[in-house]
Design a protein around this nucleic acid. Structure first.
Lengths: 224, 224
DNA sequence: ACAATGCTTCGATGAAGGACGAACTATGCG
DNA sequence: CGCATAGTTCGTCCTTCATCGAAGCATTGT
């Protein structure tokens, strides 16, 4: 008999289809209300509420009450990373179900992973940054290279670590099966992409659609 | 309603306590038989068998039949990474700790973590080995230092990697919340400790009790 | 004050699945 | 062959928990 962290408790929270759908929906990074999550999960409002209280009790969600609205969000990057990891395994062992629909195609190209960019574009970006030694990669650990500060400052991103959260982190991409960039830098880059209107977020989806001009700009800055 | 990788299916596989214990046991990297896993999980053999077939069907395990023994192992690093991610979240959100009884006190000092030593002693040992640069640590990765071979040879441990399994691995200690040494080297050290009778294993427990002399010897060799 | 909206709690129902003993299959050993 | 060990399958019991309708709070709007 083993002891230690109660991994079964956490996993079983994710192990219910309704809750899994809610968590996946929250991977978009924005907090959602109970009704929205009920819709996402395909269950009634009471059922959703029950699930949400369980997820809260399990520490996987945060709650922000604003008037009569209650916004639920993922508890943090660690939780988001766990969901990604599970998604990766699910995608790897369940190839019988994945048929690349039109929306899925867009998802593979670029999507939001909690607070940073994922998908082919994101993987290509990390590869290029490492190749140019802007970032130094050592297995799963990613550090800033000597030229990183000036490189990112040139496009208006301050790489100084403000929070305890690591600046760079490798996050395994479930569609490409290789890592992309997470951490505060990954989040800042996504902010930049949206702020510059290089891309827009697909409504009710995690997909990120680049405009033709935006794609050029992105490639010039990060893949050039 | 969402689609995509069936994350609930995978998570619910891990979400059963018996299966979670089995998977945790397999995190050591070596394959185990059904009986051993039944013991780990604290369930009967038929129950374990049922769980194992579910884990197999879910693609989380590999099976190697050798005669009448059937060795189950984790399906790959991706699965191991997922377990690690879940464990991390569980440790972070689960400070609702059981109170430290007398046996737990011994467990915190030194215990077996599948095939290597864990607990305060193990954490101190790894710290010291890294400080003396016998081992070189880079975040989660641990490698042998230049003096490692001779250092361990002096106490009768061959650090040559015989199996595919890594020689060194960092394993997060759930009681101390810092890493200790796993991998073949960690296993060899535990073997040594038992073989030299520096310590004995508590019956039906993971606790490892050092004798006064054994503790001295251990500290001289590994903490000196 | 009253109604409307957003959400939670309660109670009843039903289905899923985890548990084990007993019986069965397969391999190894003399 | 007969016996022992390792595992799986089967049948049954029983707990757990997801689900929804109805009712209860809370906040906002009129």
């Amino acid at each position: 008999m083993r002891e230690g962290p109660d991994i079964a408790r956490i996993a079983s929270l994710v192990g219910d289809p309704a809750r899994a759908n809610m968590l996946t929906a929250l991977m978009g990074g924005t907090a959602l209300t109970a009704s929205e999550l009920a819709l996402e999960a395909g269950v009634s409002l009471p059922t959703a509420s029950s699930h949400l209280s369980k997820l809260m009790e399990g520490g996987l969600l945060t709650l922000a009450s604003q008037g009569r609205h209650r916004y639920y969000g993922l508890a943090g990057p660690q939780v988001a990373g766990m969901i990604e990891a599970i998604t990766g395994v699910a995608a790897a062992v369940g190839p019988q179900r994945v048929r690349p629909g039109p929306r899925d195609a867009a998802m593979r190209v670029a999507r939001v992973c909690y607070d940073h960019l994922a998908g082919e574009q994101a993987v290509a970006m990390l590869d290029r940054l490492v190749a140019r030694q802007v970032l130094l990669r050592h297995d799963k650990e990613i550090r800033l290279g000597p030229s990183a500060a000036s490189h990112f400052a040139a496009i208006g991103i301050d790489v100084e670590s403000k929070a305890r959260r690591p600046v760079c982190r490798a996050c395994l991409d479930w569609s490409v099966r290789r890592s992309h960039l997470a951490g505060t830098l990954g989040a800042a880059i996504l902010d930049k992409i949206i702020a510059e209107k290089w891309a827009r977020r697909e409504k009710d989806s995690r997909a990120v659609i680049f405009s033709p001009m935006g794609k050029q700009a992105f490639e010039k800055v990060f893949l050039g």
